[in-house]
Design a protein around this nucleic acid. Sequence first.
DNA 1: GGATTTAAGTTAACACCGTTAACAAACATA
DNA 2: TATGTTTGTTAACGGTGTTAACTTAAATCC
Lengths: 199, 199
Amino acid sequence: MGIAERKTRHKEELRSSILTAAWDMVLSEGWQSLSIRKIADAIEYSIPVIYNHFENKEAILLEFSKEGYQLLACKLEQARATVPTPEEQLKVMADAYWDFSFEHKEYYQLMFGLGIPACEMVNQHEEIKKMTHIMISTIQQALEVSANPGADFFLKFHTYWSILHGLVSIQMIDKGRQPDHKGKLVLQDAMAGFCKSLV
Amino acid sequence: MGIAERKTRHKEELRSSILTAAWDMVLSEGWQSLSIRKIADAIEYSIPVIYNHFENKEAILLEFSKEGYQLLACKLEQARATVPTPEEQLKVMADAYWDFSFEHKEYYQLMFGLGIPACEMVNQHEEIKKMTHIMISTIQQALEVSANPGADFFLKFHTYWSILHGLVSIQMIDKGRQPDHKGKLVLQDAMAGFCKSLV
DNA sequence: GGATTTAAGTTAACACCGTTAACAAACATA
DNA sequence: TATGTTTGTTAACGGTGTTAACTTAAATCC
């Protein structure tokens, strides 16, 4: 009785073909021009089929948003694993955050672009909690090995993330698409300053 | 011969009524639901009239974006005028930036929301240059009175703005609409750290 | 194996959207 | 008063997200 299996497999294939078709369109034409109709056209099915897999267009965006947070969390963890001390980890994670933003600009826009619906429900993501947890725990470790075990590490995390996000965003707004070669130096400088303020 | 005057006056009234109608809609329903048709309905004219005053919808958004930068520049200058030293000025300007962002969230979303067309042409704005000039000149003065006259003040400005923008954005993404009461403390803490790094 | 129920997929429509060409009416000028 | 210009309208084009109603295909049951 492999019938049910075949059906669910087909359904999953259809779902993922929707996502890959949508992602291709985003990469080639940006978020603005992503449309249900074009997706339906690309996967060679009629429009309402898409609504069997996603409640609405926003749900598709939300799916990509989750993917983005997952990928970012992955990159951060990979970076952290390359160096032993929390302070060094904060630095390489900052580099990884920067690289992610410009290598996956489309994800970044969706995840952090104000006004795009996906950021409204960011607090319900499990994915974003996983990502922030990586930052938070590293900060916590950094504070524990320093002389400040009682410091509010959540506030420190907030600052850490904010500096990162601010540098990346302003770079994107200011310089457009291409990251300035000085940008990463500024980032590393700012990170060094932050780490100094931790101890 | 006040005929021409009456005409241009009427035209300006129409233009500003378009903008105020649009702004009312943005305040009550957000950027997403702003539409040319609703504006036309609100000002009780037919749709094409709007295209006599603005080339397209994007031009209207750009207009608001300019307004936003002008208002922000104004707030920054007002704040700067309240204290004498550049270091103090950087602090009160940071507070003003924070306050502006949450008091005029709609402006902020339009000005700095990634993916919204207005941020694409941000470099052509005269208004944004005026705003950044206020920050840059204050940083420059701060560096001149310190022992670092040769430091690259443009990079320092970049860091200053980035920290500000990052703290505000993460606050908006993280906490949603209402600014956390701890947020401003984090901001002031980060600003203190930045100022320390200047000297 | 044939009838019946269930799932999958399609057509066609609704209600919007930005934009523009073609036209009508009001008006200032000659 | 006739002419030309400005001002505003109607109506359409092509696009969007979404959904109700229908058809067709498949799986189950007797």
